[in-house]
């Protein structure tokens, strides 16, 4: 079986979800969105899946649309949370896992979703962080991802602007800031997979077509590498089949630059 990198990437995001977790993704996050549906259909049948901008609970959409609040995304859900019901749960600590990304991410897992060059006079004004500024402080675990590690501009030594909080900001640690969530525990990029050791990103797995030197050159902070660094475990055939079935339009591919979509593998 041949498969492409976007399919594998979604599998790796799904693998950060543990069965039974209450899990949420934000809007504009198709890879995380497909990953949550994949996890629910495979290794995490008992998770509670809260569908991004719809707040629908455990929906079974026929396809993933290119926008986060199309009504197809509540198909099969008998209940949708109200907006405030979700945010109250998130700041109270009842959401176990949320997926977050950013145009810049530092070694502590802080993320910039606001502006390259900082505010108030940005070089590039990007969309904004949605609800992440508050809920990154209180959700129990954060899965971070980026599909732009290779550019060398994403994993930075310091974010130009901190929209979502990681393990520490220049203002202090999570404990010092009074943050009740646990912060990021995984960061998946198109080059490798990091955990967080003593609050700092540490490379644990690397994709088989990537060299450590290449990954290091694309990382602006000092790269910490786990002693047991290995290649990423290949996906299972059934996982790839589910990705294709759940996302027949291929919305997940919107997150990748063309060269990443050229990466193909075999099982």
């Amino acid at each position: 079986m041949k498969f492409t990198f976007d399919e594998w990437f979604v599998v790796e995001l799904a693998r950060t979800i543990r069965d039974g977790e209450v899990t949420f993704h934000g809007f504009a996050s198709p890879c995380a969105q497909v990953a949550m549906h994949l996890a629910k259909r495979t290794h995490a049948p008992n998770m509670m899946l809260i569908e991004g901008a719809m707040y629908a609970v455990n929906p079974t959409p026929a396809f993933i649309p290119p926008t986060g609040n199309d009504a197809v995304l509540k198909q099969g859900a008998v209940y949708s949370m109200r907006f405030e019901e979700f945010f109250d749960a998130a700041v109270r600590g009842d959401i176990d896992r949320m997926f977050l990304s950013g145009i810049q991410i530092d070694r502590y897992g802080n993320a910039n979703l606001t502006a390259v060059g900082g505010m108030p006079r940005p070089k590039v004004k990007i969309g904004g962080g949605g609800g992440g500024c508050n809920v990154s402080a209180t959700v129990r675990h954060l899965s971070i991802w980026s599909t732009n590690h290779r550019t060398g501009r994403c994993l930075v030594s310091a974010c130009d602007f901190i929209t979502d909080v990681g393990h520490r900001t220049p203002a202090g640690t999570r404990a010092e800031l009074g943050y009740t969530g646990g912060g990021p525990d995984w960061m998946v990029t198109e080059l490798g997979i990091f955990d967080f050791h003593e609050g700092r990103a540490r490379l644990r797995r690397i994709f088989p077509d990537v060299a450590v030197e290449e990954l290091e050159a694309a990382t602006a902070f000092d790269l910490e590498v786990a002693a047991d660094l290995t290649e990423v475990d290949p996906p299972e055939r059934s996982q790839i089949e589910w990705v294709r079935k759940l996302d027949p339009i291929g919305i997940r591919r919107n997150e990748f630059r063309p060269q990443e979509l050229q990466r193909t593998f075999g099982l």
Binding site: A28, P30, G128
Partner: peptide
């Protein structure tokens, strides 16, 4: 909290230009 067109059409052109 956000102005844009998600991963589909990306950044909001007029908003971005005026902010910059």
């Amino acid at each position: 909290s956000y102005v844009g067109f998600e991963q589909d059409h990306g950044l909001a052109p007029a908003f971005r230009r005026a902010a910059q």
